[in-house]
Design a protein around this nucleic acid. Sequence first.
DNA 1: GCCAACCCTTCCGTTCACGGAAAGGTTACA
DNA 2: TGTAACCTTTCCGTGAACGGAAGGGTTGGC
Lengths: 169, 169
Amino acid sequence: MTQTPSDHPVAVAIDPGDAPLRIHEVADRVGLTPRSIRYYEEMGLLSPSARSQGAYRLFDQLDVERLRFIKGLRDDAGFSIAEIRALLEDEAARRLAREAFAATDDPVERRRILQGRLDSIEGQLASLRSKLGRLEEMVAALEKRRAHTIGHMAELDAVAHVARKASGR
Amino acid sequence: MTQTPSDHPVAVAIDPGDAPLRIHEVADRVGLTPRSIRYYEEMGLLSPSARSQGAYRLFDQLDVERLRFIKGLRDDAGFSIAEIRALLEDEAARRLAREAFAATDDPVERRRILQGRLDSIEGQLASLRSKLGRLEEMVAALEKRRAHTIGHMAELDAVAHVARKASGR
DNA sequence: GCCAACCCTTCCGTTCACGGAAAGGTTACA
DNA sequence: TGTAACCTTTCCGTGAACGGAAGGGTTGGC
């Protein structure tokens, strides 16, 4: 995936904006605090990012995407850090797999690696869909209550209408 | 759910069918601990439930439903207690409104009360739908990645197929 | 080569959402 | 009239998820 600026224009996803970011820059971009990012690394949600000469953390575009995903899982899906780690666990291997993928030319091996990645994604999808399902149930229940209430109101309106009629329009 | 063989299902507020439950019974039914329930009451998520002679908390069917809803908001939607309280805040008024509803015969007043309840439900629906939307976005993003990965695998398979052919079947 | 603005690790503090024990009162049942 | 099994409030403890300060090193621009 790390395409040198040479031949195929296909996967030139990262060329100029690929300058490694420092922690505060990532934090601003993603909407987290540096403290949280360090904490997530400590908790094992991030593979050890690159470091500068003087041990500064350096983040690439993949790290940023990963952190966005983490933030989504935390804020939108409401997963705990432990759950997120479980979800991303296979993905730690993915990091290695990515290198292994680039390192080999054997299609069988490459296929095996891609299959692993796919399994991981499927697992994440299953978790999210489960949460989605339960949320949809809640929405459905609320919609039912709403319909019920609206029904009652219509009833009352009908009664009022009859009453108005009975009292001579 | 626990429907006694009474006739009007409308406003049978105090019915011998739903014998008041004690805290541990509710906890078991809903899937919470007594401690959590007390905590939620302390945090203002429950209107002060009825109390027995000796100050035991007594819960009716509405309390149980409310607690189920709270649990759903907590576990499924991942809302914090503060957010849940905000969501249910108007519903504190609902409790009073329910009594007011039973206390009046004026259809106009009753309609007004129902409208208030409806507004509250709409607010809750909006919150849940917002969360739902963001979750769906995440699922969509994952599905895209999955499709991408599957595409890559198909590519590899095609290459392998060609290779097999070239090497004499 | 200097300095402001970052960054590092370490450690203690804090908020949230409860858990759990203490000390005592209540209920239901024999 | 016990008595076991609940319940009450009060208070201190805890794990998760950070916040923030201390003490010190690093970068980058002038």
